[in-house]
Design a protein around this nucleic acid. Sequence first.
DNA 1: GAGTCGTTTAGTGTCTGACAGTCCGACATA
DNA 2: TATGTCGGACTGTCAGACACTAAACGACTC
Lengths: 247, 247
Amino acid sequence: MSLRGRPVRVKFAYQQVADEIQKQIFDGSIKPGERLPGEHELAEMFGVTRSTVREGLRQLENDGLVHRPSPRRLEVCLPGTDALTSRASRTMMMMGVTFRDLWQVSMVTEPLAAELAAQNITDPEKVELRAIHARLSAITDDMLLVSKIDTQFHSFIAEATKNRVLTMAREPVSMLLYRGFAQVAPLAKIALPRQAEAHTHIVEAICAHDADLARTWMRRHINDFWKAIQNANLQDSVPAELPSEDE
Amino acid sequence: MSLRGRPVRVKFAYQQVADEIQKQIFDGSIKPGERLPGEHELAEMFGVTRSTVREGLRQLENDGLVHRPSPRRLEVCLPGTDALTSRASRTMMMMGVTFRDLWQVSMVTEPLAAELAAQNITDPEKVELRAIHARLSAITDDMLLVSKIDTQFHSFIAEATKNRVLTMAREPVSMLLYRGFAQVAPLAKIALPRQAEAHTHIVEAICAHDADLARTWMRRHINDFWKAIQNANLQDSVPAELPSEDE
DNA sequence: GAGTCGTTTAGTGTCTGACAGTCCGACATA
DNA sequence: TATGTCGGACTGTCAGACACTAAACGACTC
């Protein structure tokens, strides 16, 4: 016979506190933006010490369920994607993903993004998309800035799809590719006109709600990027940390 | 003139502790699997109190960089994807993603997975894939179990691609779709033979390293699933929490 | 020697209590 | 209305303590 033994998980006090608060956030007892009571009060409510509450809060903070604009303010907030993307890309980096891996995925997500964006973009978004494109076109020398705005360009298209799943799935990939772009950029100055052309076509196709065309051009665009990576012989290398993270 | 004021960010002690340990993990000073000194010792090393160290450790624990099999053992570990996927799917759920969103993404990720799996699957993996398929085929009544094994089936294919980016990107999506599957399953019993057929073709194509065929069948398979969702009129609804999370 | 069984002990989880620095909100002032 | 001042509340950090448990250790059997 087989004895089914589920691991008895001991519930530590700080865990219970975190779970309880989390539950109240999920079921709507506490609404996003609302302030939480002070640690002292929380401690009294849960019948534990402030230290215990603190450890629980720290966990919620890491989960992105509460936010501390200043040490004094502790407010509930729905978890954004920021924390997730940075963690995801960090994990990918540590797992040793290669540019090839990133490219293979981008090769399907980016065209999809373009396609869906063409279907769902709003008029105000069109204006902004064109603005980003214009800003990108204006740069001719600072390749690092080019890669930065380019990443922004793609992210904006993804957001225009209104598909959060796609947004979340591609964001970490995009972040890592950005680093790759920054690495190959100096070598790829020659490809700039070609990139600009692709971008123009993508923007126009999306704004014209031509999903097929948008997808096609995006596909081409990503492929170009891949060729640049290959020229730099980076296919199987791992994205590196960027030197600085200043604005 | 423009006065540039970057927000002064105070580095709290527990943050510094966490950062320092994290840095030592990243640069390889501490290797995965190794044990960390006790809290008391760490406190002495960093010149802070145990409480402070604790808060820092809690953060690393949440990040998945250290692991506590029991309260006594504190060991370094490379962050797995488990914590990320559960967090990601939770976030998606709270953002109110619909089955349509999930399907749109799966429609590109799953065929890609099949394609790459066909290229990269190893012989031992073929055996296991067939085993999962057989296990799935044997079930005829328990639709909930079907959806569970089906999820496993797809995840296994994704792992066979050896592309960690794809694995990580699709896992949360798969998790949420699983819930959807569990919801429509009772209604979709009729579609079971069709699903079995698709699975068979997918398995054979992958094992024969026929990437195109694998992609095609996977595409068809996902489309079938979408039709089931439509029949249940769930396209724009949000995946619900499953009743229980036993074994 | 390998495996089993107590015993010891180090280390965690939690608590009490405290203090300095700081931020918030309100009040007063112009 | 906008600015200066002030008290109070609250956080981050500290020191020290205690119960309880799991890991390490040694004793004991085969």
